[in-house]
Structure formats: structure tokens, C-alpha cells
């Protein structure tokens, strides 16, 4: 925070005495209470992040600074590694797959969450519907991945998907074994796992819309789709953006689901950034290269970081 803002915005925490601005003089109590957290954050987050940023310009043999290579890792990452990014038609690679995830996973999760939340408010078994859809939130991505590997199993005597397709005389398909379908199959699982989160948050927001507004619209002859798109969606736009940002952050950090369902395969066709980081740094032992990928992840999250900080400074001023 800048010096200019601190004396003026005294009640950032709501706790400061009016007569004295917060933060006059050193406090042993603060050191005692913040010490353990500060130490852990410095040792395990701040220092490693700086080390990783420098390592991305190094060969990084054995995880140490072995040989400076300038921008080699970065140039390789964006121009010479089709597993990370291949610009062409259609584009492919881990970074591109994350783009697909961001576009399709985030928008469909929000849309389905909103639709389910709106529909559920009209029935008596609302809590049950929300509970059922929310349940995957409590489940490990590892278990979720096994549930869906089973559904997607190419054997129609095992996999539900191919059993259903078999009735229509289609298949059997190996959706996870085909580079053309694997990302869509994974995104579908991601949506299945996250719609409950969107539903619960958005449902709480929708409940906050006054029923008079909705009734007035109905009296004026608005149709249900009009009410949905012209009243409900604009009125919960802030919670929608918060849910979307949370999901977006989740996509950039996505790892467990991919690792258990496909290990990035077939080939490297379903890799995402976090998977590439793990794969290049650990099984392959290319630490400098892996460090560069970790830095890419951090850079992708910086806009969200700035957005959050702005939001909190704005709230602090309002308080």
C-alpha cells in the first residue's frame, strides 16, 4: 500500500482506534502472532518462487543453478515444444488445451450452475437437487477420475457410455484413447465435478433477488427466458464473475484429474500446463525447463491477483 493511502484509510480492519492511526510503532505481539506464518510463507512460498524465476534462465541440472542458458528454456517452450504449444490449424499442446478448458469448462459450468439454481428454486425438492449436484465437490479428483474412466470404458459390458451408445448401434468408442475426443471427454468430467459449486453460490445470490421484481416482470408479460436473461443474469452478474474467476484459477492449476484419467495422453494430446510442469520437471528431470512452465502458470494468475488486490483495497475504503 502506498504512503498516501494509509493515513486516510484508517479503518481498513475496522479495529483501529479512531484517535490513532494503525501501525504506530513496532509491536512484539504482532511479531509473536505473525512469526510462524511469516516464516513458513517466506521459506516455502516467497523464497522458492524467486528461486524458480531465476532457475527458468538456467539449465537447472539437479534442481540447482548449473549453467545459465539465457532465454533458451523460454524460446523452446513457446516455439519448439509441440507438447506445450503448437501454433497451427488447429492449434494444440498443453497451453492450447488450457484455453479450451477456460472457454468451454468455465462457460458451461457457470451456465449449467445458473440454470440448475434457477430451476431448483421452483420445486420443493430443491435441497436434494443441489445436494446431489454438489456431492462431487467433496470427492477426491482421483476418485472422480476413476468413476469416469469406468463410465468411458471402451468395453460395452463395462462402460455405461458405450452400453448406451450400443443401444443406438454406435461404437464402441474409446473417447479417452482418441486425440480428437479426449479433451472434450475430460472437460465434460470437469463440468460434472464443478457445476455443484456454481449452483450453490449462484443459488444463494438468486435468493437475494426480490420476488417483487420477478413478479412485476411476469405481470408485464415477460417470458421465462426473458426473465432469465434480462433480469436474473444481470442481477447476479457479480457472483457470476466471482464463480467464473474461481473456476478459471482452478483450470490453470488443474492437475489431478488429468494425471489419473489420461496421464496427458494419448501421446501428449490431453496435457495441461500443470501436467507439463510436473512431467518436464520430475519424471524427465529438466528442472530449468519445468521452472519456466511454473513461471508461466504464475504469470497467467497475475491478472487475477491484481483484480483481487484492487477489490480488497476498494472494499477497505468503503468500510
Amino acid at each position: 500500500m502506498t504512503a498516501a493511502s494509509s493515513p486516510a484509510s484508517t479503518p481498513v480492519t475496522g479495529s483501529g482506534e479512531q484517535s490513532r492511526a494503525p501501525g504506530h510503532g513496532f509491536s512484539w505481539a504482532a511479531l509473536l502472532f505473525l512469526g510462524p506464518a511469516g516464516l513458513l510463507l517466506a521459506v516455502f512460498i516467497v523464497f522458492p518462487a524467486i528461486y524458480t524465476a531465476f532457475l527458468s534462465f538456467n539449465r537447472g541440472r539437479g534442481g540447482e543453478f548449473s549453467e545459465w542458458v539465457g532465454l533458451d528454456n523460454w524460446i523452446r517452450l513457446f516455439t519448439q515444444d509441440p507438447n506445450f504449444l503448437r501454433i497451427g490449424f488447429p492449434p494444440s499442446g498443453a497451453l492450447w488445451n488450457n484455453v479450451l478448458w477456460i472457454i468451454f469448462f468455465v462457460s458451461f459450468t457457470v451456465l449449467f450452475g445458473l440454470i440448475i439454481a434457477v430451476m431448483a428454486t421452483r420445486v420443493k425438492y430443491e435441497a436434494w437437487v443441489k445436494g446431489i449436484v454438489f456431492l462431487p465437490q467433496a470427492i477426491a479428483a482421483t476418485s472422480l477420475a476413476i468413476i469416469w474412466r469406468f463410465v468411458y470404458s471402451p468395453d460395452p459390458n463395462t462402460g455405461l457410455l458405450n452400453a448406451v451408445l450400443g443401444i443406438a448401434n454406435v461404437g464402441p468408442l474409446s473417447v479417452l484413447g482418441n486425440p480428437a475426443t479426449v479433451n472434450w471427454a475430460l472437460i465434460a468430467v470437469g463440468i460434472w465435478g464443478s457445476v455443484g459449486f456454481a449452483t450453490v453460490i449462484l443459488s444463494a445470490a438468486i435468493k437475494g433477488i426480490s420476488s417483487e421484481v420477478l413478479e412485476a416482470a411476469r405481470v408485464d408479460g415477460a417470458t421465462e427466458p426473458q426473465i432469465f436473461w434480462r433480469i436474473i443474469v444481470p442481477m447476479v452478474s457479480l457472483p457470476i464473475s466471482v464463480v467464473a474467476v474461481t473456476l478459471l484459477v482452478g483450470v490453470i492449476k488443474l492437475f489431478d484429474l488429468i494425471f489419473v484419467m489420461t496421464t496427458g495422453g494419448p501421446g501428449a494430446s490431453s496435457r495441461v500446463i500443470a501436467f507439463s510442469m510436473y512431467q518436464e520437471a520430475f519424471p524427465s528431470g529438466q528442472f530449468g525447463y519445468g521452472a519456466a512452465i511454473a513461471v508461466v502458470m504464475l504469470l497467467l494468475l497475475v491478472p487475477v491477483m491484481i483484480f483481487n488486490i484492487r477489490r480488497f483495497r476498494a472494499e477497505a475504503v468503503q468500510q
Binding site: M1, S6, S9, V12, T13, G16, R20, P22, G23, H24, G25, F26, S27, A29, A30, L31, L34, L41, F44, I45, P48, A49, T52, A53, V249, I252, K253, A274, M277, Y278, A281, F282, G290, I293, A294, V295, M297, L298, L301, V302, V304, M305, N308, I309, F312, R313, A316
Partner: peptide, 24 residues
């Protein structure tokens, strides 16, 4: 109350977004 309290809190808010991968 201590100096730079608000700054410390905003640093924590920023850390919410740091991916675990940068620490590995």
C-alpha cells in the same frame, strides 16, 4: 496494531493466487 499491517494483508491476498508449482 503494527506498521504496514494493510500491506502485509494485501501480500497475503496476492499469495492466494500463487500456484504450488513455483515451490516444487
Amino acid at each position: 496494531r503494527f506498521p504496514f499491517r494493510d500491506t502485509v494483508f494485501l501480500v497475503i491476498v496476492a499469495m492466494l493466487m500463487v500456484p504450488v508449482q513455483v515451490g516444487f
